[in-house]
Every structure is written in C-alpha cells, then in structure tokens.
Computed example of a mutant assay.
Amino acid sequence: MDLLYEDFPHILDTRQFPLSFIERLGRTANAIRTDPSRFRKVLRGKKVVVLFSQPSLRTFESSIEAAEMLGARVHAFENAAEFSSIKKGETIKDTIRILKHYNSDFFIIRWHTEGSVHAAADVAGLSHPVINAGDGPGQHPTQALLDEYTIRREFKSFDRPLVIGMVGDLLRGRTTHSLTYLLGKLYPNVSFFFISPDSARMKPEIIDYLKRHQRRYVEVPSARLDQYAAACDVLYMTRPQTDQEDDPEARARLIAEYQSFILTPEIVATMKPESIIMHPLPRTFELPEEIDDDPRARYFEQAENGLWVRMALLTEIQTQLQLAA
C-alpha cells in the first residue's frame, strides 16, 4: 500500500509524494540555483543534525552545505555508529530523544539497518522533521528526488514517452528502488528496462508495484548492456554492491557477472544523441573515466543537483512548518 502524504514533514519514502509537491520542489530548486543568496536566512536560528552510520561523500557533504547555505547551524556525525553512545548499545530512538532536548530542529539520517530512520521519525514527532538519507537496503528518497530533477531539467517534462534503463545491481541498489517507485507512481509515460545480472534482479515487490500501477517494464536479466542501451533515453548505471555481500564467493560471482554491464565507448556510440547517462556514484569499473567527456554524461551535474534539491527540500519543509504554526 502506498504511503500517505501525511508522513510530511518527514521525508522517508518516495511513494509519499504527490506530483504537486515534486513540481513545487523543482521550481524551488531552480530559484535557489539561480540566486542562492535569497535563501540564506530560511533556516536562521535552526539546528540541523546530520547523523550517518554508513560512509558517504555526496549525500553527507551536500546535506551539510545545503543546511549551512540556508543559514542553519549544523552538527554532523559521519561515523555515528562508532563515535557516539550507539557504540555502547544506545538505540537510535534514544539518540533522537536526547538530541531533541539539545535544541535540534531537523535530523538528516543515514543508517545501516532498514527501518531505523522510520523509528527515528516516530520518536522525533512532526515538529522535528527527519529526512531519510539512506535506510540500509531500503530507500534513499533524496537521491531519487535529485535524479527526477536531473531528468526533468534535461527533457523539460515527463509528458513525452521516456525509457529509463536501470543497469547493474538492481537487487541491492537502493537508489534504483527509490527512483523506480517515484517515477512509477507519478509518470505513466515512463517505461523501464531492468538490465541486470541474473543474481541481481530488481526486487519482486517493486515489480509488483509497477504492475499495480499499470506501468510498462521489461526485465532483461543476463542480457548484455549493448543489446538495450540504444533504446534508452536515460541510462542509469550502478556499481556492484559487493560491500553488502558477506560471502566472498558471491562477491566474486557478482563481479564476474558484471563484465557484461560495463559501459564502454562502443556502447555509448550506439546511444541516441539526446539520451543521457546517469550514475548515483561512487562508481567502480562499470563506468570508465573515458566516458566522462561524452556530451551525454550527466553524473557530475546529477551530483551537483543534490545540493540544490536538498536546499529546496529543507526550504519546503520549513515553509510548511511555518504555515502550520
């Protein structure tokens, strides 16, 4: 069952957003990138806690920068599971309870176990928004929001038919899960190719979600990337999530299977001139650096968009809190 918009002002799952919110968020992001100085007082007097128990560069740094550019004080914990009372056995719920008493207003949380960010939101309450920055193997909604924004800026709208090719480890990659949920809910003109090794197919519950919404998709496990890249408007590359696999043999098998999912210059040459290449980063061998100069490469712009979208998201949350006060 889809989540309800009433979860707002918490940002927990991409299924919670109506189209009106996504469109407003995009307009706010455009306004911020045009003149960031207009927004430097949005969070003046507010304290934002960035609490991460998993490694991150783009999400961690852009979340801090977004809050600071909006005028907030930021307290950031990059290795919270190792360098806080959580290492002594404290639950994330108790951590949030304590931090609320220390004048924290917003929480941006990435946690290694699925469900923990939702538990934090339950404790925080509606007056202390929680933004999910990665919920174990679950969702990563802010990544999906910046991905949608990147695609919208490129193609201007989702009114025309668009083919999104999701490539790689679709079983473990929470960025592809979140983006598929978001696009699958909102845009009937979007269709999907799921291009993956047989051992890394898209989760069955996401396939079921697309079926319920009568969205078009094709699963192409064990196929070669070069057989489908030319048909895609957006090629969304992902890395092999070997860090989520404990079995050494399974890791080696995944890497071996990935050899058919490397985006080579020869494959790029078959793609539409107006298509784009995206990647949530970090990358490994699946996206060689020699692709970076291709005019279709958008992954560094995609990463930059994370700053504007996260600023817009904080701005929208603060606006709604003020209206509700």
Rank of each mutant, 00 (worst) to 15 (best):
T14H: 07
T14C: 15
Q16I: 11
L19C: 12
S20C: 10
I22C: 13
I22Y: 11
L25M: 14
P36A: 01
P36M: 01
V42R: 09
R44E: 12
G45N: 03
Q54H: 10
Q54F: 08
S56M: 05
S62V: 09
A76W: 01
A80W: 08
F83S: 13
F83I: 14
S84L: 03
E90N: 08
D94L: 08
D94W: 08
T95N: 04
I96H: 04
I98T: 14
L99P: 00
L99N: 00
H101K: 14
I108L: 15
H112S: 12
G115Y: 06
A119M: 12
A124P: 06
V130N: 02
P137Q: 11
G138L: 03
Q143M: 11
A144W: 06
L145M: 14
D147E: 06
E148S: 12
E148G: 02
R152S: 09
K156L: 14
D159Q: 13
R160N: 14
V167D: 00
G168K: 00
R172I: 00
G173T: 13
G173M: 11
R174G: 02
T176I: 12
Y181N: 02
K185E: 01
Y187N: 05
P188Q: 04
V190L: 03
S191V: 02
S196P: 02
S199M: 14
A200M: 12
Y217F: 15
E219R: 08
R224V: 10
A230C: 08
A230I: 07
C232I: 00
L235F: 06
L235A: 00
L235W: 03
Q241I: 04
T242V: 13
P248A: 05
A250I: 11
R251K: 15
A252H: 10
S260K: 14
L263W: 01
P265H: 05
P265C: 02
E266G: 06
T270S: 13
M271Y: 03
I276S: 01
E290K: 15
I291K: 07
D292Q: 10
P295W: 07
Q302F: 06
A303S: 15
E304C: 10
E304Y: 13
W308H: 12
W308A: 01
M311G: 04
M311N: 03
Q320S: 13
